[in-house]
């Protein structure tokens, strides 16, 4: 893996990105042309006028960048260093992949369940924390996220197929019992596992 990325230099990245951007600009020009792109005195500016010429401008800019590359006028066109620092690739790739999985999973099993997996994976990989800590962190964060968004701000986050799991929680949140009672329950839910975790640590020792 590191062999491939050390060959992928800044120079190559510069030209690949510029060509890709040029192609995107052309595609956007074509897409803009679905609306009227003319501007006449009677009909005024068409809806596609601005997007069309903006993407045309983007195309010109990328063409200049490509030109500068060919003439070796830009600092990037002479840069033979690897695009991503050697030794850092796995951090970048893993972060990108795990983020994509987080969002993909959110669409199906909901954000709260996905967060548990994401946090557990990420912390296991990037930190040297103990399994107990990671477990607790992956447990607490989704709960706090839920309390903050769903209860305080009343912003529903995606739950996907895990939605029915939360029906009892909503029933509890909006039940008749007093606020104090609810807060006591929340404190128990939040702090019982860490307490158990600490206890078990001491026990194992």
């Amino acid at each position: 893996m590191s062999n491939i990325s050390s060959k992928f230099t800044v120079k190559i990245a510069e030209i690949v990105v510029a060509v890709l951007l040029a192609m995107c600009s052309i595609a956007l020009m074509i897409k803009s042309a679905e609306n009227r792109i003319d501007w006449t005195a009677e009909t005024n500016m068409g809806a596609g006028f601005l997007p069309f010429y903006l993407s045309a401008g983007m195309l010109v800019c990328t063409l200049i960048t490509i030109g500068k590359f060919i003439l070796k006028k830009s600092p990037q066109s002479k840069d033979d260093n690897p695009f991503i620092q050697v030794g850092a690739e796995r951090y970048i790739y893993l972060t990108v992949i795990s983020l994509c999985f987080l969002v993909l999973a959110t669409a199906y099993i909901g954000i709260y369940i996905s967060l548990i997996f994401f946090l557990a994976f990420y912390l296991k990989f990037f930190s040297n924390k103990s399994n107990i800590f990671i477990g607790l962190f992956a447990y607490e964060t989704p709960i706090l996220t839920f309390l903050f968004f769903e209860w305080l701000l009343k912003i529903p986050l995606p739950q996907g197929y895990s939605e029915p799991l939360f029906y009892p929680v909503y029933d509890f949140m909006y039940s008749e019992s007093s606020l104090v009672e609810k807060i006591i329950y929340i404190i128990i839910i939040l702090f019982l596992p860490p307490a158990l975790g600490l206890l078990s640590k001491r026990f194992i020792k």
């Binding site: 994401f118 946090l119 990420y122």
Partner: peptide, 8 residues
């Protein structure tokens, strides 16, 4: 290492 996932 902990701040990063929280920010994400």
């Amino acid at each position: 290492a902990i701040l990063a996932p929280v920010i994400f």
